[in-house]
Write a protein that binds this DNA or RNA. Structure first.
Lengths: 266, 266
DNA sequence: TCTCTTTTCCGTACGTCGTACTGAATTCTG
DNA sequence: CAGAATTCAGTACGACGTACGGAAAAGAGA
């Protein structure tokens, strides 16, 4: 037995994983080969992905359906399946494409400035492509742009000389923070995900709450904050504020570790 | 003109907002009145919400459909609409119910310990109800449990004596952090949102990437981190690590403000 | 040039979803 | 006991992703 399927590690990567997985990796990394035989393709993969981003930008991510993207391109819905395996995969390609616009920091800068630039670039990305907040429910696409940025973030954080486990955590912390601010701002700014109502309309529709169940006795702190006007936030500042606190904390950790394990080179 | 609809502020809260909004607020705050006339109800609102949570727990949030919840309860799908205005509203009620289990910290503790307890409770909540990570796409429900916890978080952060704008930001920062860790862990742990494949199956299916496009030259830092084993993270530690860095940063801010604006009482 | 194979395009169709509408059954009110 | 109000639920509509199959197009081999 076991003579047909050897248990030795397979050395040919083109047989690793599943056909679907390999197909998706190829779509992300290789320009799709124009394929000799049949009729010419009316579109390119890039056009399809761009049309998806156009639909998401114009009508919101909830309207990103195969039928809508196809209509945007003037083709039948099922035609898209020759370019893309399915809706989820199209979204994956859109995510990687969104990351393509990320600038990388000058490597000669101090680590903190590099990390700050990465955070601001992430913030800019979420503002440009608000539908990216949905990507949190997806696994990270293994696309070239996502991976290159990710690598550069880890490189920048490594400059702190922190041990690798802490590097991973700090990188995740910065990412989470920007994402968190983006999420709250986008949810409050753009249209509601399902119904098409704005934030103002939402609060207005539920305004009866403030006259019936909300009492300053039950919610004294919120009342005070509200009256101070501090709930009216400016989003950009929130990113910077959190980032500053967070990196202050990281610097403190670096100092503390330096004291307990002094560098032999110093 | 304008004699029928006065522009003076309406003093009767029962006319504020929209009928739908008022209905939802009532569902969140008042036990539904058993309503005299028609046939007895076979269920209670609580049973419906609980059935929704059961479906979400057993099959994942993607299987939370009106038909599934109804089947769970042994009633017709349309019957649910006498208890709940719609699917989104049911989810809103589920969210508030999930927050009901949040413990509040002892108010005599130092602010930092109180905030830490809030963070750990949030973490526990996301572990108990993983489908809550979807709530980020919703606006915060104005339910009693959500509001009470929120008030208590603000109260705890206020103990720092920071100005209100900073209080709001710090509270948001802690919330974002816990959410961020929960998101990454849940996405990596539970089944994929759409397809029913596990994280292991996902990475396995795409494993061809590592043999074809991934090279240590292009991704040197990730390679080093990978080989050190630092990518195998333990989630609970991540919450604590980030929380520690974050609150260290907040303490630093407090000290800095205390220096520039020394308390007159001291 | 003619045929064969491959590929593209896309209409149809199935199963899912939320929910509008309708009507029958049920219970309290007058 | 008639009428009004309310619950339950079947049917149906328009959206969705996508499996399937057929028609058309284009290069490859004769």
């Amino acid at each position: 037995m076991n003579d047909e399927k050897p248990t030795v590690p397979d050395t040919d990567p083109s047989t690793w994983g599943t056909p679907e997985g390999r197909h998706m990796i190829r779509l992300l990394w290789d320009p799709p080969t124009p394929a000799g035989r049949g009729p010419k393709q009316k579109l390119t993969l890039d056009q399809v992905v761009e049309a998806g981003m156009a639909v998401a930008a114009a009508e919101g991510i909830d309207k990103l359906s195969m039928r809508n993207v196809a209509a945007q391109l003037g083709v039948g819905a099922m035609s898209l399946y020759t370019y893309v395996p399915g809706r989820d995969e199209l979204f994956e390609l859109m995510i990687d494409r969104a990351w393509a616009a990320r600038k990388l920091p000058d490597q000669s800068l101090p680590w903190r400035e590099q990390v700050e630039l990465h955070a601001r670039e992430a913030w800019r990305m979420y503002q440009s492509y608000p539908w990216l907040i949905r990507s949190n429910l997806w696994r990270m696409p293994l696309g070239p742009h996502v991976m290159d940025v990710q690598e550069d973030i880890y490189r920048a954080v490594t400059l702190t000389d922190l041990p690798y486990p802490e590097v991973v955590r700090v990188a995740g912390l910065v990412e989470s923070h920007v994402f968190g601010v983006a999420r709250s701002v986008i949810t409050d700014t753009s249209l509601s995900s399902n119904t098409g109502i704005t934030a103002d309309e939402y609060w207005e529709s539920r305004s009866s709450f403030w006259g019936t169940y909300y009492t300053p006795e039950r919610f004294p702190t919120m009342t005070a904050i509200w009256e101070s006007g501090a709930f009216e936030r400016s989003a950009g500042d929130e990113v910077e504020f959190g980032l500053a606190r967070l990196l202050d904390g990281v610097e403190l950790l670096i100092e503390r570790l330096a004291v307990s394990h002094p560098s032999p080179v110093e």
